[in-house]
């Protein structure tokens, strides 16, 4: 078969100096009808979008980047988010805007000789940070490692049975709050950044959900909201902050924030408080009298994947 040219199917047409108007308009009408039909079918095909747009307001759509919000705008945003939590989760929450305390740089350390892999930190994180109940999400993963190696390839995150096992040690991994965070570098829209106290945060209302940061992170610290988080009203932690544990929107990335809604108010991270063995130590490294400072100065500490040059603010040691 051959593809025909304009009008060449009608031999008369080519010989005339003017196009045949009736034929032209008839074909135009047919094409117009097809185009309309196609457009209509397209509108029908993407109709689920209307459902999606119902869940997001114009104010949310137009909201600017966190760092560019004026104090009044910020207030409006926080009030809107609180109202949303009420509407969608039937929970009365307060969403604060906790800022870094000057002269603070938070650092974490875990004593691997003491950690026994009971996973209480994983659970505490799950509750504290309003994680999706369905997927049992948490920012912490614990690897069960055979003694005699630090090679994570030998470990497993899906261990079960009574812990601790004699020939194993346990390695909890969460966001390392790197000083050279690859996840921050790769973000195309600056939706994630490092704050003055060392905490890497995400503006959940600016993230476009490309998941480039998730690919860039060497510690599997980031999580994506594949679906709307489900938290029953009575289980919602109402004590929230904009940059940390407020219930996240669908389709954005989230991560451990060293519980900044607690730590910036002088409390300890939830995972530390929940740990029954006392393996976890947290504090301000700039404070010479802090516990964490003593540990870093006196213990032989190591960091994960040092060769990548990410400079974690998270340390491990054995007694």
């Amino acid at each position: 078969m051959t593809t025909t040219e304009s009008g060449s199917s009608d031999p008369d047409q080519r010989n005339r100096s003017l196009p045949v108007i009736e034929n032209f308009s008839r074909r135009a009408a047919v094409k117009g009808a097809f185009a309309t039909l196609g457009a209509g079918a397209f509108v029908a095909a993407v109709s689920p979008l209307r459902q999606a747009s119902k869940n997001s307001s114009a104010a949310e759509f137009l909201q600017t980047h966190y760092t560019e919000l004026s104090p009044e705008q910020k207030e409006g945003v926080l009030a809107r988010l609180e109202a949303e939590a009420k509407e969608e989760y039937d929970a009365d929450v307060t969403i604060a805007d906790d800022r870094p305390i000057p002269g603070t740089k938070f650092v974490y350390a875990i004593n691997l000789s003491v950690c026994n892999g009971n996973g209480k930190c994983v659970e505490a994180c799950h509750k504290e940070n309003n994680h999706d109940r369905d997927t049992n999400q948490s920012y912490i993963r614990v690897l069960e490692m055979p003694k005699g190696t630090l090679d994570m390839e030998q470990g497993t995150t899906s261990y079960s049975g009574v812990v601790p096992k004699g020939d194993k040690f346990y390695l909890p991994v969460q966001c390392q709050q790197c000083d050279e965070p690859p996840c921050v570098d790769v973000c195309p829209v600056k939706a994630t950044w490092k704050e003055e106290d060392g905490i890497v945060v995400v503006d959940y209302n600016w993230c476009i959900g490309c998941r480039y940061c998730e690919a860039a992170c060497p510690y599997h610290a980031r999580r994506f909201n594949w679906k709307k988080p489900e938290v029953p009203a009575d289980e919602v932690n109402p004590d929230q902050s904009y940059l940390s544990n407020r219930i996240r929107p669908t389709g954005v990335v989230e991560k451990c924030t060293y519980c900044l809604h607690r730590t910036r108010r002088g409390r300890l991270p939830a995972c530390l408080e929940a740990c029954p063995t006392g393996a976890r130590v947290f504090g301000n490294i700039l404070d010479p009298s802090s516990n964490i400072r003593w540990i870093l100065e006196n213990k032989r500490v190591y960091i994960l994947k040092e060769e990548l040059g990410t400079k974690p603010a998270f340390f491990y040691y054995f007694d």
């Binding site: 600016w206 476009i208 490309c210």
Partner: peptide, 12 residues
């Protein structure tokens, strides 16, 4: 298609 939030495309 890969974006979690295509509505925020303008941030790019």
């Amino acid at each position: 298609a890969d974006l979690g939030r295509p509505d925020r495309f303008w941030h790019l």
